[in-house]
Design a protein around this nucleic acid. Structure first.
Length: 331
DNA sequence: GGTAGACCTGGACGC
DNA sequence: GCGTCCAGGTCTACC
């Protein structure tokens, strides 16, 4: 018999806004249905994979104009699971959904962000979608480096189809046992093949010993940003851009993952001129006043630009609009 | 410390 | 249909 879950939901939470807030919501195994307004994905649980179907009460199941955000803020989430979950599995599923949707982001943190950058106070934007595990966020970040968005989509789709069980994202243990040649030939990961396997080996248990990487250490507020940064750039395939991006996924928003997209934004939206390097420096300096929230300010500016081109993110279809985000198409 | 070139894939383009 | 060029971040070798 299918299970139902009801995690605690903060008063300001809006599923359509907060799930469709970062590009990873368009990557497998995530699927947002813009018509039915349902977030679906497979999670790994102790009893095997389980498919979750997440909706928010009050969000209209219609293909008309999306509901204004305030109408559903704080309404309960309805999570239908395709099989019965044992008690520990229910707790595990809720923990993963909580991480993904940042349901435990304190209201005080978002209020501090809105006080610093009031541009996003009206819409309530502040949460950023992420994966149920740090490992998935790290691999997704590696698959987004040195490729255009359609290739990132392909790599994640094929990782789930070829290596993941039942369409789920591969576990560290499974990826650690996968041959690099398989990732290259069947998942189109290219030269990232060995790096992804090496990363998986660091996240996977080593026999009876725990994994070399402890995600809890990276997420612990007692660990400084500098310590996290140093540990991240020491990982295979992780450079300055990837490390800064993983930091925001870990909830540390004080660094910017500067890339060619930052340069495009600097030129076309902020009006900066000069060499790429100079524009990148100016973009970094521009967001300096936002301190520990600078990534949120930067990212929602970019997101606003994308939404001006393609419509509100919760109306994007993964296979069509969601696959078109390349710099040349956004000029 | 800074820089050049290799690493892959997929798409655009010319023939 | 084929070959060439280009975009994209990380890594290594070299100055």
């Amino acid at each position: 018999m299918p299970s139902r879950l009801a995690p605690p939901v903060p008063d300001d939470f809006v599923l359509a806004r907060d799930a469709c807030s970062y590009g990873y919501f368009l990557l497998r195994p995530n699927h947002w249905d813009p018509k039915r307004r349902v977030l679906t994905r497979v999670l790994h649980l102790p009893g095997g994979p389980a498919t979750l179907r997440i909706t928010q009460a009050g969000d209209p199941d219609a293909d008309g104009a999306p509901a204004p955000w305030p109408r559903v803020a704080g309404n309960p989430l309805r999570i239908a699971v395709n099989r019965t979950l044992a008690r520990p599995e229910r707790a595990g599923a809720i923990a993963q959904v909580t991480r993904m949707l940042r349901l435990d982001e304190p209201a005080s943190t978002l209020a501090a962000f809105h006080a610093l950058d009031p541009r996003w106070a009206d819409t309530g934007r502040g949460r950023l979608f992420r994966s149920p595990t740090m490992f998935e966020d790290v691999v997704k970040t590696v698959t987004s480096c040195n490729v255009q968005w359609p290739s990132t989509i392909t790599m994640n789709r094929r990782l789930c189809e070829v290596v993941g069980a039942s369409g789920a994202f591969p576990t560290p243990a499974k990826l650690a046992r996968t041959r690099p040649a398989t990732l290259r030939a069947r998942c189109r990961c290219g030269y990232r093949d060995q790096r992804i396997v090496d990363l998986a080996r660091l996240f996977a248990p080593r026999g009876k010993r725990p994994p070399e990487i402890d995600p809890a250490w990276f997420e612990d507020p007692g660990t400084s940003d500098e310590q996290v940064w140093d540990a991240l750039v020491a990982l295979p395939g992780i450079g300055p851009y990837a490390a800064a991006n993983i930091m925001q996924l870990l909830g540390r928003f004080g660094r910017l993952p500067l890339d060619t997209e930052s340069v495009r934004h600097g030129r076309s939206v902020l009006g900066f001129e000069g060499t790429d390097k100079a524009v990148m420096r100016r973009v970094g300096a521009h967001f300096e006043p936002f301190g520990t929230h600078k990534f949120r300010s930067y990212w929602f500016e970019l997101w606003k630009f994308y939404e001006a081109k393609r419509g509100r993110a919760d109306t994007w279809d993964r296979e069509t609009v969601g696959a078109t985000f390349t710099a040349s198409q956004l000029e």
